[in-house]
């Protein structure tokens, strides 16, 4: 539900990069979205279509989403495991002393011009 707000941030950043690189049209924006980032990719791309087409720089610009799998590290046994499958509790040693290693990214990877 916060995807539209995120799209406005992306547009601001892409505009800035385009200006710095003297680019007048962007054909694709590539995003890295973590599996547990709470961003829903299809809502992000829907909002993107609506907002991007209002900008000359981004008319027809596609958004490509790379999903980053979520991985949690366990301080109890120093192992890593899939966050989505096991959540906060380590499947190897049952410790809850765990933290997210990756998977909450909401990043602009690159633009293709």
């Amino acid at each position: 539900m916060h995807e539209l707000g995120i799209v406005f941030y992306i547009i601001k950043d892409v505009k800035q990069v385009a200006e710095e690189n003297h680019v007048d049209h962007v054909s694709t924006v590539v995003m890295d979205i973590g599996e547990v980032s709470t961003v829903v990719p299809h809502l992000l791309t829907d909002c993107w279509r609506w907002a991007a087409d209002k900008e000359d720089l981004l008319k027809g610009c596609e958004m490509q989403v790379n999903t980053i799998p979520a991985v949690t590290h366990c301080d109890g046994c120093q192992k890593e495991y899939e966050t989505v499958k096991y959540g906060k509790t380590c499947p190897f040693c049952n410790s809850q002393n765990t933290w997210l290693l990756r998977g909450n990214e909401v990043e602009i990877n690159s633009i293709i011009v």
């Binding site: 995120i6 601001k12 990043e107 690159s110 293709i112 011009v113």
Partner: peptide
């Protein structure tokens, strides 16, 4: 010619 410009920046960075 197609050109890729790498950004690698969190969307939340400016807000933070």
């Amino acid at each position: 010619q197609v050109k890729v410009i790498e950004i690698k920046k969190s969307v939340f960075a400016d807000n933070e």
